[in-house]
Amino acid sequence: MLHFPSKNTAAHTADPTDVTRLHQLLGHHIWAFSNCRVDAPPVRVQEVDWLFYNSLNGTFILSEWKRFPAQVSQVRDVGEPWGLANGASVANPLEQVARQLDAVRRALRLSVVGKHLPAVDQHAINVYQSVYCPQVTEATRQERLRYGTVHATLDELARTVERRAVTAPLVVVSGIAQVALADALAELFRCSVGTAVRRKLDPPVAVGPPALPEPAAAAPRTRVAAIHRELAALHLELASLVDAPAPAPVPAPVPAPAQVPVPVPVPGTPAKKALAAQAKKSPPVAGHLQHHVMKHVPSARAGSDHVRVAFLAALQDGQLRKSGVHVGEFGALVGQRLEGSVKLASLTPGGLKKWCLTQAEAAGIPAEPDATHPSVVRLVRTAGQR
């Protein structure tokens, strides 16, 4: 995620914990403008908590963040207040975000579309509205909403930002045009462009003679990114097929001599020999990796947190210290645990390897790709380790 914080010193600032979590969930193709001030006369000036722009899908997602002193007991559509578990009523956030939507849409029409997206019909601008409220739980009664959605977790919000699509995407292709659009949006919504964001946005400087103009039929940046995502999904599926454990061959029965009695296990006695024989049947590395996935990733309703715990446990497993964690094998094992419509790509946005390294960094665990085998992630040896 590329974060554009408010440059208004009087504005509220985003919680660093929330910003860190969004960085983990969203890739650099998501531009996030926080604590925006939107001035689009004659519409009244609006203060916007978060405005997300998906530069690949060409979508804007407006998000109003609300935190209440008690659990939300009922979410109602516009026209009625929300109810809290303590019996209180609060102003309907959906009505607030609807007013913000009018201002954002008008500002985009007046200041952005004509100059940076001239081919887009101004009346086709479709900004998606949403509310994030962590006090909304499974026990909350929700009416059917006519517009937008209510998110109870940042994971749900991130999925909407990543997947939201429109019939008229607001996309610019070239790197120079993207920089100009980012500057225009930051200025429009009173946000700043940090040095790190600028470095990720600026296109590389061409070396040598100027290149000839590309033909109009050349593959646009959005299609290249989509192809990369499709390739990543295919690689994960291929890994799950190649690395799937084959059924153990059934050995042919060997008749035992009649005079040798067959040992009968005594109840309560530790079967050490049986355990040792079982351990020899599966490779230690694959067995340990599978153990962590089976232990921490449930077969039903698995989430990103389950995958993160499984990866960090495998990364710190002493038995896997020498081999490291093969990201492809790990993804294949996790994929075998997922059921229904849950996909590994939705749980690990931005790519599995990058996501794994981000989780290790967030947990304070030094890890890096192996220099010889980049698909393997291992702990970084420190001076205190042998």
Rank of each mutant, 00 (worst) to 15 (best):
A225H: 05
A226V: 09
A226D: 15
I227Y: 15
R229Y: 07
R229T: 06
R229F: 05
E230V: 12
E230Q: 15
E230N: 13
E230F: 14
L231G: 02
L231E: 12
A233C: 09
A233L: 12
L234I: 14
L234P: 10
L234W: 14
L234G: 14
H235N: 15
E237S: 15
A239K: 08
S240M: 13
V242W: 11
D243R: 05
P245I: 09
A246R: 14
A246H: 08
P247F: 10
P249H: 15
V250I: 09
A252I: 06
P253L: 08
V254N: 10
P255K: 14
P257Q: 11
P257W: 08
P257V: 05
A258R: 09
A258K: 07
Q259K: 04
V260S: 00
P261I: 00
P261W: 00
V262R: 07
V262K: 03
V262I: 11
V262Y: 02
P263G: 03
P263M: 01
P263R: 06
V264W: 07
V264Q: 10
V264I: 11
V264D: 05
V264H: 06
V264P: 02
P265M: 00
V266H: 00
P267M: 01
G268V: 01
G268Y: 03
G268W: 06
P270H: 04
P270K: 08
P270S: 07
A271C: 03
K272G: 01
K273R: 06
K273A: 07
K273G: 03
K273C: 00
L275V: 09
A277M: 14
A277R: 15
Q278R: 14
A279P: 01
A279D: 07
S282N: 04
S282I: 06
P283G: 13
P283D: 13
P284T: 10
P284Y: 05
V285Y: 03
A286G: 01
A286H: 02
G287T: 07
H288K: 06
L289S: 02
Q290H: 04
Q290K: 06
Q290G: 07
H292E: 05
H292K: 06
M294S: 12
M294T: 11
M294N: 13
M294K: 11
K295W: 11
H296I: 02
H296M: 06
V297L: 08
V297S: 08
V297N: 08
P298N: 09
P298S: 04
S299P: 07
A300G: 09
R301H: 08
R301G: 01
R301K: 08
A302P: 13
A302V: 08
A302Y: 05
G303H: 00
G303Q: 05
S304G: 08
S304C: 02
D305M: 02
D305H: 05
V309C: 01
V309F: 01
V309Y: 00
A310P: 07
A310K: 04
F311Y: 10
F311W: 04
L312N: 04
A313F: 03
A313R: 12
A313C: 09
